[in-house]
Design a protein around this nucleic acid. Structure first.
Lengths: 301, 301
DNA sequence: CTCTCTATTCAGGAATCGAGATTTTTCGTT
DNA sequence: AACGAAAAATCTCGATTCCTGAATAGAGAG
């Protein structure tokens, strides 16, 4: 039995979708289908019932799910246990506000459980600033949003900085414009009936993407706020459109019928210096890759 | 991580030898070497220290060993847990005396632990009789010694019976002639200075192999005894040469300097009827395959 | 009914795997 | 010290598996 098949199974089980699972594990849907079928044949059991488009776990699938989680965790622990130098000291992680809120809690918890003697220092910031801090050594690694190619053309220094760092795609976010309740549906920025965009700091990639989108058909000022809670509050007043990934919006039990507009998928990158991976960082990377597979919310269109 | 690599690692760890491990898992030594190296690279750690011909576990190897056992067991449990129909009822297993003594205890224990509601009925017998009983349905499966080709040519009925059954090689035994203490070393049956061969029933394949070997250069009568203990006792009197696999001899803390002669490797087969694998039997087969990998004594030259 | 979205099937090229032959090293023996 | 046997590692070459991208089939929404 191949543990990568088990990870694929976990991804499908939590996404209840082959397509989403394929995104989550960085493979192509046909491959995911095949691996699941192989697993089913190997076990001699049907794991999913394919009713229409939905993939729902069968009873056997449910019981295998429990074992799969244990298997993957155990394999991770084995991997960590043989690490020649035990991670210790401080790991300085930079992160966007949004990632810290929606993606990191599970990973940080597991990491802390596994390596209690490593002290984690978390720094919030905008992608632009985080990249610089990783490069100059103030951070060991950071989660940033991958800037679209068009943005990098205009910010050559940023482009150069990223090129000199290692980057690994770890999450995919569905970037949204959140509209006040009652606001009519929009297809472009021209349809906006608000006075401003509510976003975080200027260095925030999400903000820059949204501003670029808005500038194509209107000229809205940006209101700068300190947190996603502040942004949502501002949207609730009725005169601002908020910018945030869907995963963050999902966290904030907001009325379900909130009106949103998709700006498209944006990858979250984990960046770090080449040839400089302290033992604590490698451990963090491994924990992250395992968590990723097992978290239902990690794949988005 | 591929669990078959982990199983190979376990085999090497317990055999402390690539060659033996290769025999145990039914692969070629070069393959075992490669898989172990892959595993080491994947984990970023050296698992064995190669001092000369010996493969000894490093400190990291030791800790990985513990996890490997848990991983393999957990995978087995997962496999068993999803079994669509829970095994129950009676499983009738036939076995040679020798297999029951040396190989089965571990497997039967684990099976009983895993499926307490299956009642195991063990029947001892000679290979020849066991095969017939499996064929006529008196047994669900049996462990027999694979008869050499020359024997099957002379016993066409036996050959036909085996051909109509499924057979899977599960162990390899090193068949020995055990000599009385003080007996000079021998290279052929002509060197024997005893009055008889001590063996089990006529249908016993080991006995027939030994008799065939003896008949080439001398004509010794065979003394038929009821158990391996009786055979050894008979050898101790000084006038008989015993026939038994090394694994059995090893069990009977006999003086270490016992004089033996190798008759060569003999495979133990698990035989069962085609298209008739009750759920309890499949479960038994799976437990067996896992146990096999983890038992130090399952590979012999 | 059509359009879209999803899972599956299919075909190819790439990568991996395993067996056997060869080489290198070690250990036991003379 | 030299030789021979045995074991691990390396190398090469088919065979298999694996992954991707394209084509297909089927379901649900408008």
């Amino acid at each position: 039995m191949d543990l990568s098949s088990v990870e694929i199974f976990l991804a499908v089980a939590s996404a209840r979708s082959v397509t989403k699972a394929a995104k989550a594990v960085g493979r192509v849907p046909s491959n995911v289908t095949t691996r699941v079928q192989q697993l089913e044949e190997d076990l001699g059991v049907v794991l999913f019932s394919r009713d229409g488009k939905k993939m729902t776990l069968t009873r056997e699938g449910e019981t295998f799910l429990a074992y799969s989680n244990r298997l993957v965790v155990l394999a991770l622990e084995a991997r960590q246990a043989v690490r020649p130098v035990v991670p210790s000291g401080t790991l300085r992680v930079g992160t966007m506000e949004s990632t810290a809120a929606s993606r990191l809690p599970a990973a940080l918890t597991q990491f802390n459980q596994m390596w209690p003697e490593v002290s984690l220092r978390l720094t919030m910031g905008a992608s632009r600033d985080l990249a610089r801090d990783v490069l100059n050594g103030a951070l060991d690694c950071a989660f940033i949003a991958r800037p679209p190619a068009s943005m990098l053309e205009q910010d050559v220094a940023f482009d150069a900085e990223l090129k000199s760092l290692e980057a690994e795609a770890v999450f995919i976010e569905d970037l949204l414009i959140v509209l006040p309740s009652g606001h009519p549906q929009i297809t472009s920025a021209a349809d906006l009936r608000v006075g401003s965009l509510a976003a975080l700091e200027p260095g925030c990639t999400y903000r820059r993407i949204a501003e670029h989108w808005a500038s194509q058909s209107s000229s809205l000022p940006t209101t700068e706020l300190g947190s996603y809670h502040a942004i949502l509050a501002s949207v609730a007043t009725g005169d601002a459109a908020g910018v945030m990934p869907r995963s963050v919006l999902d966290l904030m039990h907001w009325p379900a019928n909130v009106q949103t507009h998709q700006l498209g998928p944006v990858e979250t990158l984990l960046i770090y210096r080449q040839n400089d991976r302290p033992s604590a960082f490698s451990a963090f990377q491994e924990v992250l890759s395992t968590i990723k597979v097992r978290d239902p919310r990690l794949a988005t269109n």
